[in-house]
């Protein structure tokens, strides 16, 4: 495994999936995995199976809902979409993330005193 890839941060996968669903509308698990892979530009490694663990978690919290439909290759697939609760949560998490990443960026930007 190439060493320049980072593990997905615990908890960030949920946020990424929420955002993906928000941006692209209803998607199946495969689609979500592709989209994240694409966006991460091979920076993140993803065991695609963990997407499903995350999807179950989000569903239990009622942030996303699912229904069966046809996939591109005409297979039965489960399509997930974001719920109203999920949207609210996404806004909240996004704000949280930005605040924290801003803090971390500021901390990392500290210059070493001579």
């Amino acid at each position: 495994m190439p060493t320049d890839k980072s593990e997905v941060l615990q908890g960030t996968l949920d946020l990424m999936i929420l955002k993906t669903l928000h941006a692209l509308g209803p998607l199946h698990g495969f689609g979500i995995a592709r989209r994240i892979e694409q966006l991460s530009e091979d920076v993140l490694t993803l065991n695609e199976g963990t997407v499903y663990t995350s999807l179950l978690r989000l569903q239990q919290k009622n942030w996303i809902a699912s229904e069966w439909g046809q996939s591109e290759n005409n297979r039965r697939a489960r399509f997930y979409n974001i719920t109203r609760r999920g949207l609210k949560q996404l806004a909240l998490e996004t704000e949280n993330w930005e605040r924290i990443s801003a803090v971390i960026s500021r901390v990392l930007a500290l210059e070493v005193k001579a």
Partner: peptide, 28 residues
């Protein structure tokens, strides 16, 4: 409540999940 609901119909979820995963693997 979601977990409670899932107590019933566990085997149904098993089949659905394996179908979902197989579809994913095929696509991949």
């Amino acid at each position: 409540f979601a977990k409670l609901k899932a107590v019933f119909g566990q085997s149904k979820d098993d089949t659905a999940f394996s179908e979902e995963v197989n579809a994913h693997l095929d696509l991949l």
